[in-house]
Design a binder for these strands. Structure first.
Lengths: 321, 321
DNA sequence: ACATATATACTCGAAATGAGTATTATTGTG
DNA sequence: CACAATAATACTCATTTCGAGTATATATGT
């Protein structure tokens, strides 16, 4: 237990909110460098727990009050936490910048005012292939599948080829599993379809998909999206992202935005109502056209009452609203 | 990002196997001190990833080949990683033993030969209130609920009391949710029903429930059990713990052992078979009494083919076999 | 031959799910 | 002002899954 040189703990947070139909993440962005998630060091002297450290500096830096937070994953890969332009091998030389082990968090919040240096960006900028709400994204057929086919063909032997084929099939084959965000990102990284691959390898950057992020932050964001998409189904977490009162369609749009899928309206309503997740307020939303919708509120009691079920996404996909 | 003093990364593994009807965890045990999970430091110079570091020293120390592994959680709480007998405040004094952030892993393996200094121990030694296979454990009514009632009554105001009541109800109320292992352990810790509470607080130890472990290892084990119980239901992970060929009853017993619940035999069989998780080998097991059971094997192909579903535990609970 | 112990097959009602169709309450337009 | 358009909400229906049995088959031991 004596090795404690050159390791530091970094905390990164994927702070998520939804405005309208856009799931967004809070990023630190500067001219001339890639976007980054808010991150900071963990100071073991000042903070009793990792999470209290996180809440502290997120509060200071972004003035956001994190409601729900959840630890995602701890990443310690050598060569994947390198600022652009830095020699990726410097960490192994003993007293260089040292190794950073980063603990990623997911946080959900309602959207408030922005803070200097930070901005809300739609998460599909970083993962354009993950949004299936309107159509299957065209880049899957035009760019991704051709590259993946080549990846399978380039296998050194037939056994490797078979493993690769299965992986490609699970990630991008028939039967879209909206939760496999991380697996897909890692696959695209491996085949050189995302910019981070070239940066980490010190190679010249090629034309790639989606907007890159600093360090391994896009990987952390992929983990966050995957986790949130999964959690949606069995815990009522969407409500952390909603205003106190909302129409059922607004709720549905939020879930759709996060899941990247369209849902069946009537069944969605039935699910939410039957589970008692929500109760009418007796007020109606002002709508431009059509019959006005009732405003609902989340029945916070369900969190305790029963084993609080989630919004089981009504249906896989559906043609239209 | 300059703080890197006095933090070290420890890796701990809950290595799980099942023999017969006993879910077991590999522990390091010595006369005179509490059991511990195998753990070791993460050496950032030698290892590229946290997981490769883990596999390396687990391999060296225990000679076990970890099949499935999964990162659980990263714990960094001050005062909960203190060896028995050490002043729990020494970590905060700057250049004492320093702060250990520990990354917990879950690993599944088939049981092999034991290694000196380690031993397989049934996990219900540490969590006797979690085994509901035969009956609802008597200690819940005799020891746990009385203490929890007092905990609710001792609340300083009625709002706190209400929150406590809800927590108690979710953890030990009607409708046992076998996945809430960690929540229950944390609650018992808080009310002083587990030994670690007294040790961490530097108080004299009272009569408590279950076998204690060193550091925060029982918490890590609780996390592992919770995760595994959850995962069982949607990924076919049980098979990592089974011999290459097994009868359906053996499979059911393994799932029951892990979940701490009895399942409905006929429905369990239907679920497993209908999902194509398993195929007959045409061989039959030698049984002492009764009609011989066919031996089955796991159809590894399902892992790729479809989005591999898990063994959805047939039923909540059942009177008898 | 039959009691006992298992394994395996089949049945049946209740609930959940997927996919609609039908009805109601608004606004905008000819 | 009637009516097209738009959206909310209600209701229907076939299919699947689930929980809980009963029924039958194949062993062993006496």
């Amino acid at each position: 237990m004596s090795i404690r040189d050159n390791v530091s703990i970094g905390l990164s947070a994927a702070i998520v909110s939804v405005k309208g139909e856009r799931p967004s993440v809070l990023v630190v962005s500067h001219e001339g460098s890639d976007d980054a998630l808010p991150f900071g060091p963990f100071d073991p002297v000042r903070h009793r727990t990792l999470e209290s450290g996180l809440r502290k500096w997120v509060g200071e830096q972004t003035r956001f009050d994190l409601g729900y937070t959840e630890q995602l994953y701890t990443f310690g890969d050598k060569g994947r936490h390198t600022p652009a332009g830095t020699d990726r091998h410097s960490a192994s030389s003993g007293d260089g910048p040292g190794r950073v082990v980063s603990v990623g968090y997911l946080a959900l919040t309602r959207q408030g005012k922005e803070v200097p240096e930070t901005q809300w960006r739609g998460w599909y900028h970083y993962f354009p292939w993950e949004d299936w709400r309107d159509t299957r994204p065209a880049m899957i057929d035009s760019a991704i599948l051709p590259a993946l086919k080549k990846f399978v063909k380039d296998a050194t032997n037939s056994e490797v080829a078979e493993l690769r084929r299965e992986r490609v099939n699970v990630c991008f084959g028939e039967g879209w599993d909206e939760e496999r965000v991380l697996e897909r990102y890692e696959l695209l990284y491996e085949v050189g379809l995302v910019e981070e691959f070239y940066r980490d390898a010190g190679k010249p950057v090629k034309q790639t998909l989606g907007t890159p992020m600093q360090f391994d932050h896009r990987r952390i964001l992929a983990t966050a999206i995957a986790r949130l998409r999964g959690k949606l189904k069995y815990r009522p977490v969407v409500f952390e992202l909603m205003a106190p009162a909302f129409t059922l369609l607004e709720l549905q749009r939020a879930v759709e935005a996060l899941a990247g899928l369209r849902l069946h309206k009537q069944n969605f309503r039935r699910l939410v109502a039957d589970q008692g997740l929500v109760e009418g307020t007796g007020k109606w939303a002002a709508t431009a056209r059509g019959r006005p919708a009732e405003l609902f509120r989340f029945r916070r009691e369900v969190l305790r009452e029963r084993q609080a079920p989630g919004v089981r996404l009504g249906v896989r996909r559906v043609k239209n609203t």
